[in-house]
Design a protein around this nucleic acid. Structure first.
Length: 853
RNA sequence: GCGGGCGUGGUGAAACUGGUAGACACGCCAGAUUUAGGUUCUGGUGGCGAAAGCCGUGGGGGUUCGAGUCCCUUCGCCCGCACCA
């Protein structure tokens, strides 16, 4: 073939469908347990079927696919499944807006997105596909709920909950961001409701401790979880109250500052506050006001610390005759500790702000080392640093930690308190007043109370005939669904109409993938074989919610016998977001990238009208700012391989990346360049298996090939995809300059295999053009010949007093005297020395020689 | 406020345990071939300078023969948590 009659471009459309069919025909990605090989479970966070895939999905699934294909080539038995996180609010919103049933909407979206993902050529075992909205999935979730309920991992109680007035549902603490619902953005209100809770706090310590064992998790995520769990060590102290027989219990992490206490504070939600308010209209009004201001971020931001003196006095435990006033204060949370504190203004900023407002005493009791206790004063800033105790009787002179221990001991001896560990983590409330979720399988009976649905009656299926014309939960107003007989006494009873938080669905799907058609939630053989997930990949936005819930749920599954491990994800990688420039008209209307163009002078204009456009900085792709690029358009225009290649190029995968037109066309050019290189050289190459030549040029070529194999292998292992891409570029540059021969064949075959996980269709195409047998997906990963990598000569840097003066091409591992002589003979070196005597020489073999004068 | 991360050419970024800063790519410049369309190929490209050379990894200081990398300090940007006692 000559260049003239060779097709000039890689026909990706034809090739991609052809190779996808070939993989499919061979069942190349179907996974089965095989104990003769090491297993490797690669999982990307499964998508919510919102409609169409977006670029974030493309990046996520490309990275996972690279890992899956690479590990497969390395001989691992790989599991790489895909499913749908299919329950959730958007389906109900669509039902309300477009009058389609949530199920219909969801399944249609799944069909679209499955088709789109298949266009990407992912090495997924589609036989294992699951959708959480399918009864075959959620019936098992219901079964586990019953088991966990029985095991004491779940309970029901009434409590203050976060109510989202837009989505008309309760939210977990983790789902309230800056006082607003994580989906709707509405300011969350406080309501009292009966709710089901997972007892995640029972595992608080364990979930915290085990973070240390997650070595292949990003440090950032582990820190975020540790902060969220929020362990604190302190002391619970019971103060005697004047004129009452009961005691006021407070929690503190600074018991050492007890002598600096000038008041006690209780939460507006504290039972004592309610009791006192019953006889005090002013206090009652204050409490009501606190409740209304609630938790909105604006309220908290500016909220002044305010309180009301209840008139109640507590006795200081160590100062006879001293009493402290008890205030109801708006900054004290009922949910944390005991809902009551003692205030030591000198050493706590909040207490100080409060004390200044109500003219309470401020007595420093911790003084920085070396300061005179008599002279040390606290102004507008509390002193929270280390130091020695003062004004504290028997604690005087002690360091903070010693003082804490001393006080704790005395309080415990006096039986007026005890050491206590507190966590910020709250139990996970999972009741949602929504239709499109997994029904909670319990029945409420007047006589028997809460009765679990018998396992034989599962699944509790969602009724299909529901309406969305009025707000609220359609299950609640369904004419028949909720009316059932009590399984226990047989009398008329009422079904629970709340459904699970959708995070329950995603807390175990990774386990279900191991045995997706099993009749029980899990097949223990399968989960014991496949779990844990060896490599999990997804967005950082799930650092707390999904990842913490899954860690808990896996433990709960272990306790109920559904799994046998504690930690579901051995390795975690969090990818960055896809960003794009934003475009606005002068009037402020957002425009899509396809609606604007850049003129030669660098200004931007609207297509058609020519209106001047303001280009905004690159931001996360989002529909509201219209800076989105549709993956399907890209795949149709450039092919899946080009899209994948660009996703892996340039930006490190954990960092945000910019989607640019130049970037995608650059990737497109490279794919063609590689294709053209093989297309033009293939026929000139010697047959496969011909021994490589041994002349200098061929040896150099082989060295480049094997260096690339070694480099790319290391880069893929370390998730350095952008460097792997750079190394492939380098190798292709080298191969492009070589003349045909066995060494070139070796190089082209190697580059084909190296590119395999990243551009799988193109790799197959090249492999077949090179006349190789079988498919790339079945070929083992190439091995680097270490012997070829050892170079006999090295380029050594020569410095004079640390300044670069030149380089020397010398024999590998040459001796210092020889190097020194050569270096001193360099004109640049003699010039720099200026005749001075050499005082010292530092020589690092094969690296550098530094001459000091 | 607390916790964490990041500042390197015009741009995205490389640089393993301190050892030739800017690999690779985009863009740009020059040339060649096609010149009906983002094609392909060759060379150049951190800054200043005619050159030798000097200066360069946010700023300042330090350790070291040698610092993008380690230490101190300061500025800027981003992310997470946020009245958690």
């Amino acid at each position: 073939m000559t260049a003239a009659d060779a097709p000039s471009r890689y026909a990706f459309k034809d090739a991609e469908t052809r190779w996808q069919a070939a993989w499919n025909d061979r069942g190349a990605f179907v996974a089965a347990e095989d104990r003769s090989r090491p297993k490797y479970y690669v999982l990307e966070m499964f998508p919510y079927p919102s409609g169409r895939i977006h670029m974030g999905h493309v990046r996520n699934y490309t990275m996972g696919d690279v890992v899956a294909r690479y590990k497969r080539a390395r001989g691992f038995n790989v599991l790489h499944p895909m499913g749908w996180d299919a329950f959730g609010m958007p389906a109900e919103n669509a039902a309300m807006e477009k009058k389609v049933h949530p199920a219909e909407w969801t399944y249609a979206n799944i069909d679209t997105m499955r088709r789109q993902l298949k266009m990407m050529g992912l090495s997924i075992d589609w036989d294992r596909e699951i959708a959480t909205c399918h009864p075959d999935y959620y019936r098992h979730e219901q079964k586990m709920f019953l088991d966990m309920l029985e095991a004491g991992l779940i309970y029901r109680r009434e409590g203050w909950v976060n109510w989202d007035p837009v989505d008309n549902t309760v939210l977990a603490n983790e789902q309230v961001i800056d006082g607003r619902g994580w989906r709707s953005g509405a300011v969350v209100e406080k309501r009292r409701l009966s709710q089901w809770f997972f007892r995640i706090t029972a595992y608080a310590q364990e979930l915290l401790d085990a973070l240390d064992s997650l070595e292949r998790w990003p440090e950032k995520v582990r820190l975020m979880q540790a902060n969220w769990i929020g362990r604190s060590e302190g002391l619970r102290i019971a103060f005697e109250m004047e004129g009452r027989s009961d005691r006021l219990e407070v929690y503190t992490t600074r018991p050492d500052t007890i002598f600096g206490a000038s008041f006690c504070g209780i939460s507006p939600e504290h039972p004592l506050a309610a009791e006192l308010a019953a006889r005090d209209a002013d206090l009652a009004a204050f409490i009501e006001e606190c409740r209304r201001t609630g938790t909105s971020e604006a309220a908290i931001e500016q909220a002044e610390k305010v309180g009301r003196d209840t008139g109640l006095r507590v006795k200081h435990p160590f100062v006879p005759g001293k009493t402290l006033p008890v205030y109801v204060a708006n900054f004290i949370l009922m949910e944390y500790g005991t809902g009551a504190i003692f205030g030591c203004p000198a050493h706590d900023q909040r207490d100080l702000d409060f004390a200044r407002k109500y003219a309470l005493p401020v007595l420093p009791v911790v003084v920085p080392e070396g300061e005179d206790p008599a002279a040390f004063e606290v102004g507008t800033e509390a002193y929270t640093g280390p130091g020695r105790l003062a004004n504290s009787e028997f604690l005087d002179g002690l360091a903070v930690d010693a003082a804490k221990a001393e006080i704790a001991g005395r309080i415990e001896t006096a039986q007026s308190g005890r050491r206590e560990v507190n966590f910020r983590l709250r139990d996970w409330g999972i009741s949602r007043q929504r239709y499109w979720g997994c029904p909670i399988p319990v029945i409420h009976c007047e006589a028997c109370g809460v009765v679990p649905v018998p396992a034989a009656d599962l699944p509790v299926e969602l009724p299909p005939d529901v309406t969305f014309d009025v707000p609220g939960n359609p299950l609640d107003r369904h004419p028949t669904w909720k009316h059932v007989d009590c399984p226990s006494c047989g009398k008329a009873a009422r079904r629970e109409t709340d459904t699970f938080d959708t995070f329950v669905d995603s807390s175990w799907y990774f386990a279900r993938f191991c045995s997706p058609r099993a009749d029980a939630p899990t097949d223990r053989n399968a989960v014991d074989y496949w779990l844990p997930v060896d490599q999990y990949i997804g967005g950082i936005e799930h650092a707390i919610l999904h990842l913490l819930y899954s860690r808990f749920f896996t433990r709960a599954m272990k306790k109920t016998g559904h799994a046998g491990l504690d930690e579901p994800f051995a390795g975690l990688f969090t990818q960055g977001m896809i960003c794009h420039e934003t475009y606005r008209t002068e009037a402020g209307t957002w425009l899509e990238p396809t609606e604007v163009e850049r003129a030669d002078d660098g200004t931007w204009h609207r297509l058609g009208s020519g209106e001047t456009i303001r280009v905004g900085r690159s931001e996360k792709m989002s529909k509201s700012k219209k800076n989105v690029i549709d993956p399907e358009d890209i795949i149709n225009t450039y092919g899946a391989d080009t899209a994948r290649w660009f996703m892996l190029s340039d930006s490190p995968p954990e960092r945000d990346m910019d989607w640019t037109e130049a970037g995608i066309t650059g990737a497109w050019r490279f794919a063609n360049r590689l294709w053209r290189l093989v297309a033009t050289q293939a026929s000139a190459l010697p047959p496969r298996g011909t021994a490589p030549e041994t002349d200098d040029a061929s040896t150099a070529l082989r060295r480049a090939t094997h260096a690339a194999i070694k480099g790319v292998t290391g880069d893929l292992e370390a998730f350095h995809f952008n460097r792997a891409v750079a190394r492939v570029h380098e190798l292709v540059n080298t191969l492009s300059e070589a003349s045909p021969g066995a060494a070139l064949r070796e190089g082209l075959e190697a580059v084909t295999l190296l590119v395999g996980p990243m551009m799988p269709h193109l790799a197959e195409e090249l492999w077949s053009m090179l006349g190789a047998e079988g498919l790339v997906v079945e070929a083992p990963w190439p091995a680097a010949d270490e012997a070829l990598l050892v170079e006999e000569s090295v380029k050594l840097a020569v410095q004079v007093r640390g300044k670069m003066r030149g380089t020397l091409e010398v024999a590998r591992d040459a001796g210092q005297p020889e190097i020194e002589a050569l270096a001193l003979a360099l004109p640049t070196v003699t010039a720099a020395l200026g005749g001075d005597a050499v005082k010292k020489v530092i020589y690092v073999p094969n690296r550098i020689i530094n001459i000091i004068h």
